[in-house]
Design a protein around this nucleic acid. Structure first.
Lengths: 335, 335
DNA sequence: GTGAAAGCGCTAACAT
DNA sequence: ATGTTAGCGCTTTCAC
């Protein structure tokens, strides 16, 4: 008793109504060149037969799959999952589905993912990540489909992207700390080779220092932690360097550092002022709560997807490097 | 100067080598019925032309898309995103791609998502969620593709699923609290109508009470919080009821309650012992850290996907209701 | 307004 | 070992 009810095809519908495939296709696709009365009949038959167009066949014939690819480091990271949520919501709004791939920010996996998506004939790709190697760039070009970067920055802004102005944001928070009288301000980054860290966050930090007439000290820049666990070791290094303030690129790492200090008898913000950058729930869970740069994560994803829909429609972008506004949220971890 | 390099087709390759489509198809698909020498030539041509099989055409011809659908409440929720990561990792391992849809646990959206996935001819579906209405069940049946539930429970176990034994886990933690001498133990759930809450968590809680000879008090069961923010209000109710211990279904809500108590001058675990259930990073970020049921979230997703691959291969499952082991992690929020 | 027919790029018998 | 030939289910000219 296997359920063998084969899916009805457009042909079945056409036959039942006594019209041609073309007519059925027209009503399915909302083409107006169909007499109202026959449209009715077709619709009725579609309903009777439970006909659902086969998207694969459609994709083959029309060369549009109404599917996009999302290449991201890790769904498990709240920062990225919020971007993804923004992407998915507007994708659904425009009737696109999203094929999601985790790369752990590994460039080889990203290349594989992009090629694979290309194979599946996605109509466009949203790329998230902190790196963008030349191989990835090459893979992107090879796809021939529009790609927009979300929450990622290519050092050489050639691809459409949506972000906040990381340079300005990091300069702003660093300046705030400088104004509080700090001399040894740590900058905690995620890597020593990613554009977002080196060409943006670090630059903002350095600009603040320069404008205040402070020397840049390489020893105050850290880049060893990406998780709560490794944040503990990173924190120990900050203590060793005797920093009195810190700007941190990631919330989990920031909470880790905050906890480390307090667990070791230091007071926050008295002994350490700390500012984080993603304003995820981690920043309100800690005690004291963490001051943070507030990036419109969801919106970054949403706007990126919106751009992509335009690109997929063949529209030109008036503006392809979009900076969404960020804000600074003051909480207990700073004075 | 538009990049008009049309993608090479299998036909181009065949022509270049001077063989038929079929031969090319064979080497692409690893069919052994090809002389080594011609295989070489074909491979060479594929390389020269940069030929990549069109997965859509393939899907249409073979009726297999090597794509699965993942229907989940919200990627942004760490519990689900970890499940999704497990799913995606084994999916990649088996060369499947995942089409992801957020439903916010809305049954109508779930139905729409399932129908849509069906339209896209996915080979299988992983469903996550706390509810499973009859409409959703109906939509699932209608797809004719295998579906496995991950981290979800249908009250009437008819679909393959992988979970932990929620009843046992909740009974265990409740018993622990009872053994600490508590009389008023709160149970904080996410809903008053979901199977996972009512038919599993609540049942485990009640069993513990019953075995200890304690009366069940409906006023100690709460179900109003799903976020950190709403957790604050929920916490106020716990205080009002004068509970001295609590079992909480979600980490963010648990942290919220923990913080509320401490922010209002109560001591944890002295005035409130609290145990949470997902052991996400939220449980180690708080001070004190939260004792927790430890669910193998990633594994639940991974195993569910593994089951699905079997089902998609037409294999029978020896066991379709899988309970992965859980553990109890003791931290500072309990004595 | 509607139909006929040619593909889209591939797989899968079936021949040879 | 290799080729031929139908489709897969749909869109899309081009006629009428």
């Amino acid at each position: 008793m296997v359920d063998q009810k084969k899916n009805a095809t457009i042909y079945d519908v056409a036959e039942k109504v006594g019209v041609s495939l073309a007519t059925v296709s027209r009503v399915v696709n909302g083409n107006n060149n169909v007499r109202a009365s026959t449209r009715e009949k077709v619709l009725q038959a579609i309903d009777d037969l439970g006909y659902q167009p086969n998207a694969v066949a459609r994709g083959l014939a029309s060369k549009k799959t109404t599917t996009i690819g999302v290449v991201m480091p890790d769904v498990t990271n709240v920062f990225y999952s919020e971007l993804a949520r923004g992407v998915d919501d507007v994708a659904q709004m425009y009737q696109y589905d999203a094929l999601l791939t985790n790369t752990d920010d590994d460039q080889n996996r990203a290349v594989t993912a992009i090629k694979n998506l290309s194979t599946k004939q996605v109509d466009g790709i949203i790329y998230m990540g902190t790196k963008l190697s030349s191989q990835v760039l090459k893979a992107i070009e090879a796809t021939n489909v529009p790609v927009v970067l979300a929450g990622s920055v290519a050092a050489d802004e050639q691809l459409p992207s949506v972000n906040i102005d990381y340079v300005a944001a990091f300069e702003a928070v660093t300046t705030k700390l400088i104004n509080h009288g700090h001399q040894k301000i740590a900058l905690v980054l995620g890597s020593e080779d990613r554009a977002i860290d080196q060409s943006f966050r670090l630059v903002g930090y350095q600009q603040a220092l320069a404008k205040a007439g402070l020397d840049y000290d390489k020893n105050l820049v850290f880049a060893k932690a990406r998780t709560y666990a490794t944040g503990q070791n990173q924190a120990a290094e900050l203590v060793a360097q005797g920093v009195t303030a810190a700007v941190v690129y990631d919330d989990e790492v920031a909470v880790s550092i905050l906890n480390y200090y307090q667990d070791h008898g230091y007071k926050v913000p008295e002994d350490l002022e700390i500012i984080t950058s993603n304003n995820t729930n981690f920043s309100i869970v800690s005690r004291p709560e963490l001051s943070s740069i507030n990036q419109p994560k969801y919106d970054i994803g949403a706007v990126a997807m919106r751009l992509l829909t335009k690109l997929m429609n063949g529209e030109k972008l008036e503006e392809s490097q979009i900076h969404l506004p960020y804000t600074l949220i003051k909480r207990g971890s700073t004075r």
